[in-house]
Write a protein that binds this DNA or RNA. Structure first.
Lengths: 205, 205
DNA sequence: TTTGCATTTAACCAAATGGTTAAACCATTC
DNA sequence: GAATGGTTTAACCATTTGGTTAAATGCAAA
């Protein structure tokens, strides 16, 4: 089992909890596994974070915070629409390059236990997405953007930016067959460019 | 001849195992939970499927089988390229409409325990994807399709078809704010149409 | 040096969990 | 009716797991 060191115990525990919870989820994660990964005794976990759920909460809250930070740019009304979209692409792809498991973690845990996170989710969104969709519709009506289904556009945009990270293990496997180097196809820069192409292609310029 | 009950115990167990394993994964799932869901005694599980891992194997094998069935059409060289793509879109979207959690289940379990599934994955793919990408490249060279990065195209195509199901819980939450009925935006038919538009747009006609 | 406090540990504990066993049930066959 | 064999169950068992406790350690202030 991999160990983390060279930081305070509390930090090491949180970092280890992040790793283990992301991999196994709330139910699948084992306290002993977290302790081993952090390189400390199991009792320490309970000293710093009363119990498993409280520890999970800390980890999940941090994850949500960081995740929704990428989406916040949609609400920045000082920027023109397309720039907001491009910034979102840069944000989310860079973020997921660092934490490729984040999307699955958040979605899985929410779908397992929706009640647990209702308030937290409610606090994070304040109609950002819905308002942005309205802004899209307005520009389409004004003839500044091609008229398409704005909701489907948003879904597609998120899909292009997010799924490549989720499915990376499968893709790598499916594409590994001849001598070609497919790692480069997952480079963040290529993904960003591809998503931006999609935006230009569908919204017109 | 033995009379089939409308649902035999064994079938009910497998069905319950599917539900519970998909939700919690191998480590997170509890045998008692599976037994309760199936409405039988816990010992029955071990009677039909020796142990947890063997039961999981059965479930996972079935999942893989069904999942890769959707992709098989890429290898059907009797069909023109674009028709293969369109058929894949129809296949995968219809399949995921029925089992929205399938993608996450497969990817999660593989990423947790890659060794466990190496052989099974190896058996399922025989360069299908790689050969299809070569076919794409040939048609591009022949001027029949617009010249784009074929690997990125495949990644994008899968993303558009798959991610909407994965993220449905999040999307529904993010979009639920005014009186609009957003359920229709997740209709399989709309998704298929949107993915096909993407294909036409990027590969040219 | 000693006091006080945060940090750390080994040793436990009760409950949950995967798994076993032996017996009961029940329809069919002899 | 007895034997057969697949099906079902309650009662167990050993291990794992989340959580507790009391004592040890280190360290900074008095």
């Amino acid at each position: 089992m991999k160990q983390l060191k060279d930081t305070s115990a509390e930090e090491r525990i949180l970092e280890a909890a992040k790793v283990v919870f992301m991999k196994y989820g709330l139910y699948g994660a084992r306290m002993q596994d977290i302790a081993d990964t952090a390189g400390i005794n199991k009792a320490l976990l309970h000293y710093y974070f009363r119990n498993k759920e409280k520890m999970f909460d800390k980890v999940f809250e941090g994850a949500l915070q960081k995740y929704f930070q990428s989406v916040d740019v949609f609400g920045d009304t000082t920027l023109p629409i397309k720039e907001r979209i491009f910034k979102y692409i840069d944000n989310i792809v860079s973020f997921l390059s660092e934490y490729p498991q984040m999307t699955m973690f958040i979605i899985k845990e929410i779908s397992i236990n929706p009640e647990m996170f209702k308030e937290k989710l409610q606090a994070l969104k304040r109609g950002r997405t819905v308002r942005f969709i309205q802004a899209l519709e307005e520009e389409m009506s004004a003839g500044k953007l091609r008229k398409i289904d704005p909701v489907m556009f948003m879904i597609n945009l998120h899909s292009l930016c997010t799924y490549p990270f989720i499915a990376a293990p499968l893709f790598k496997h499916a594409l590994k067959a001849n001598g070609k180097d497919y790692e480069k196809d997952f480079s963040p820069e290529k993904l960003k460019q591809s998503a931006k192409n999609f935006v230009e292609l569908t919204l017109g310029k």
